[in-house]
């Protein structure tokens, strides 16, 4: 669809307008289905070893996870503003909002790496317990999504620079949708692994 609109294309906002394109939504759904399998497997084993999981989860730095939750929520809000600016042709403003989103992505990644370092220093690893197996695999695959999302955001921002040809609004909406998914998945991860283990 981007092909039809062209890189400079813009679409009138109407009641029928669905952001991005159908294939993108199917992709996001399929991607989250894989995460649903991760979460399902986690909950299955959590149910049969609650005490062990709760003891391990107590080693997670909840405040760091909470700060990261706020960081991602803020970056999701900024990406919404970037899409709005992009749609209205205010490319400079969109670029600034994307700068904020990217700062959020960088902060999240930095804090996550600090968190990993703390946990590994405390003797926890991929194979030390069932809880930490899920913790490292699920947050690791999520962090890979953060990296992919960051790459897409950088491409979007760079194409908005003066003298460059910006991507079409559908492309921007697709990247924004991906970033919202990254945020949504983190909310579930934080709820299940960091907080839910105490429930």
């Amino acid at each position: 669809m981007v092909g039809h609109l062209g890189r400079h294309g813009s679409i009138a906002r109407s009641a029928e307008h669905v952001p991005a394109e159908r294939g993108m939504w199917l992709f996001l759904l399929a991607d989250m289905t894989v995460f649903a399998l991760f979460f399902g497997a986690y909950l299955w084993e959590f149910g049969s070893a609650r005490d062990e999981f709760t003891a391990d989860a107590a080693a997670l730095p909840v405040p760091v996870g909470f700060v990261n939750t706020l960081v991602l929520l803020t970056s999701s809000f900024l990406v919404v503003r970037a899409v709005e600016a992009h749609r209205s042709g205010a490319f400079d403003r969109a670029r600034r909002f994307l700068g904020g989103t990217l700062a959020g992505a960088g902060t999240f990644t930095g804090l996550k790496l600090v968190e990993y370092a703390l946990e590994i220093a405390a003797g926890h690893g991929l194979t030390t317990s069932t809880f930490f197996m899920y913790y490292f695999v699920i947050t690791g695959v999520h962090l890979m999504h953060v990296a992919i999302g960051t790459t897409l955001l950088v491409a979007w921002q760079r194409a908005l620079a003066p003298g460059k040809a910006p991507y079409g609004p559908r492309w921007a909406e697709g990247v924004a949708g991906y970033w919202h998914m990254v945020d949504l998945l983190w909310l579930i991860i934080f709820s299940l692994l960091y907080i839910g283990s105490y429930a």
Binding site: M1, G23, M24, L26, F27, D31, V34, G140, V141
Partner: peptide, 17 residues
């Protein structure tokens, strides 16, 4: 078709880990 492009992205993701 474009859906095939998105399908390829998803299939690739299921292999990554």
């Amino acid at each position: 078709p474009r859906w095939l492009g998105f399908l390829n992205l998803w299939v690739g993701f299921t292999f990554t880990f």
